[in-house]
Amino acid sequence: MVVSVRDVALAASVSVGTVSNVLNHPDKVSPATVERVTAAIEKLGFVRNDAARQLRAGHSRSIGLVVLDVRNPFFTDIARGAEERAAEARMTVMLGNSDEKAERERAYIDLFEEQRIAGLLISPLADDLPRLRRLRDRGTTVVLVDREVADESFSSVSVDDVGGGYLAVQHLAAQGRRRIAFVGGPMGIRQVVDRLEGASRAANEAGVSLEVILTDSLSVLAGRAAGDALSARAPEDRPDAVFAANDLLAMGVLQALMMRSSIRVPDEIALIGYDDIDFAAAAVVPLSSIRQPAELIGYTAVDLMLREAGGKSDPERVVFQPELVVRESTARPA
Score class of each variant (00 low, 15 high):
N49Y: 10
Q170H: 14
T76Y: 04
I189H: 11
I213D: 02
V285D: 01
V5M: 11
R71N: 13
V326F: 00
D275L: 05
R332Q: 01
L111Q: 09
M91N: 02
D50M: 13
L296Y: 02
R134A: 15
V169D: 02
A51V: 07
F279V: 12
A40M: 04
D27C: 10
R6C: 10
A89P: 00
V16C: 11
Q54W: 13
N72Y: 04
A89G: 03
D160I: 08
D77T: 13
P235R: 15
M258K: 06
L254D: 02
E100N: 11
V318K: 08
F182D: 15
F46Y: 15
G223C: 06
E105S: 09
D194I: 10
D303E: 13
A57G: 07
M1A: 08
L218R: 11
P239F: 12
P333Q: 07
R190Q: 12
P31L: 09
I78H: 06
M258S: 07
E328F: 01
D160P: 00
V34R: 11
T33D: 11
S15L: 05
E268G: 03
I189W: 07
M94R: 06
V29L: 08
Y166F: 15
P286M: 02
Q54G: 11
A79R: 12
F112P: 01
A232Y: 04
A225L: 09
R195N: 07
L95A: 09
L221E: 13
E148G: 05
G185P: 07
G139M: 07
M259I: 03
R36S: 08
R238A: 03
A174L: 12
E268Q: 11
S209M: 10
R177M: 02
S60D: 06
I117M: 14
P26D: 04
E113V: 07
